[in-house]
Measured scan of single mutants.
Amino acid sequence: PREAYIVTIEKGKPGQTVTWYQLRADHPKPDSLISEHPTAQEAMDAKKRYED
């Protein structure tokens, strides 16, 4: 089974940042970016789909 994890990042100019959620996995390479999402819920949904 595949495993993934969610990383929170800040995008934008200082003082005007927006939080994004990255879905990452250690396949095919360590810390590979799988997808980016504007909400934590979307990231969790993507994580479930990826791991299923």
Rank of each mutant, 00 (worst) to 15 (best):
P1G: 14
P1L: 14
P1Y: 14
P1M: 13
P1T: 13
P1H: 14
R2E: 06
R2P: 11
R2F: 12
E3A: 15
E3K: 15
E3C: 13
E3Q: 15
A4D: 00
A4L: 14
A4W: 10
A4P: 09
A4G: 08
Y5D: 01
Y5A: 02
Y5R: 13
I6R: 00
I6M: 04
I6T: 02
V7L: 07
V7K: 08
V7A: 06
V7G: 03
T8L: 12
T8E: 14
T8W: 07
T8D: 04
T8N: 06
I9M: 07
I9Y: 08
E10I: 13
E10H: 11
E10P: 05
E10F: 10
E10W: 07
K11C: 10
K11D: 03
K11H: 07
K11R: 13
K11W: 06
K11A: 05
G12F: 05
G12I: 05
G12Q: 05
G12Y: 05
G12L: 04
G12W: 05
K13C: 11
P14E: 12
P14V: 10
P14F: 10
G15F: 07
G15I: 03
G15Y: 06
G15N: 07
Q16N: 13
Q16I: 07
Q16W: 09
T17Y: 12
T17F: 11
T17I: 10
T17G: 09
T17S: 11
V18T: 14
V18A: 08
V18G: 05
V18N: 08
V18I: 12
V18L: 09
V18Q: 12
V18K: 13
V18W: 08
T19P: 06
T19I: 14
T19S: 06
W20K: 04
W20H: 04
W20N: 02
W20Y: 09
W20C: 06
W20T: 04
Y21A: 00
Y21H: 03
Y21C: 01
Y21D: 00
Y21G: 00
Y21S: 00
Q22I: 04
Q22L: 04
Q22H: 04
Q22N: 01
Q22A: 04
Q22V: 04
L23M: 03
L23E: 00
L23W: 01
L23C: 02
L23A: 01
R24L: 06
R24E: 01
R24G: 01
R24Q: 03
R24P: 01
A25D: 03
A25Y: 05
A25R: 11
A25F: 04
D26A: 13
D26C: 14
D26H: 14
H27S: 11
H27Y: 15
H27I: 12
H27R: 10
H27L: 09
H27V: 13
H27A: 07
P28T: 06
P28Y: 07
P28W: 06
P28A: 07
K29G: 09
K29P: 15
K29W: 14
K29E: 14
K29D: 10
K29V: 14
K29F: 14
P30Y: 10
P30F: 10
D31F: 15
D31T: 05
D31W: 15
S32P: 02
S32G: 06
S32Y: 12
S32I: 10
S32E: 06
S32N: 08
S32R: 15
S32D: 04
S32T: 15
S32V: 11
L33M: 07
L33V: 13
I34A: 01
I34L: 08
I34S: 00
I34V: 08
I34K: 04
I34F: 02
S35K: 01
S35L: 01
S35I: 01
S35T: 03
S35A: 02
S35D: 01
S35H: 01
S35P: 00
E36Q: 05
E36V: 07
E36K: 02
E36W: 06
E36C: 09
E36M: 05
E36T: 07
H37V: 01
H37I: 01
H37R: 00
P38A: 14
P38E: 11
P38N: 07
P38W: 06
P38L: 13
P38I: 10
T39V: 03
T39Q: 03
T39Y: 04
T39R: 04
T39I: 03
A40H: 15
A40C: 15
A40F: 15
Q41A: 13
Q41W: 11
Q41K: 13
Q41S: 11
Q41P: 06
Q41M: 10
Q41L: 11
Q41N: 08
E42K: 06
E42M: 07
E42H: 05
E42G: 08
E42Y: 03
E42L: 09
E42R: 05
A43K: 00
A43H: 00
A43T: 02
A43F: 00
A43R: 00
A43Y: 00
A43C: 05
M44F: 13
M44C: 10
M44T: 08
M44Q: 12
D45T: 09
D45W: 12
D45N: 11
D45R: 11
A46Q: 03
A46F: 04
A46E: 04
A46T: 02
K47D: 00
K47E: 02
K47M: 10
K47P: 00
K47H: 05
K47W: 07
K48Y: 08
K48Q: 12
K48L: 12
K48C: 07
K48E: 09
R49P: 01
R49S: 09
R49W: 11
Y50I: 05
Y50L: 07
Y50V: 04
E51Q: 11
E51P: 04
E51I: 10
D52L: 14
D52W: 12
D52G: 14
D52E: 15
D52R: 13
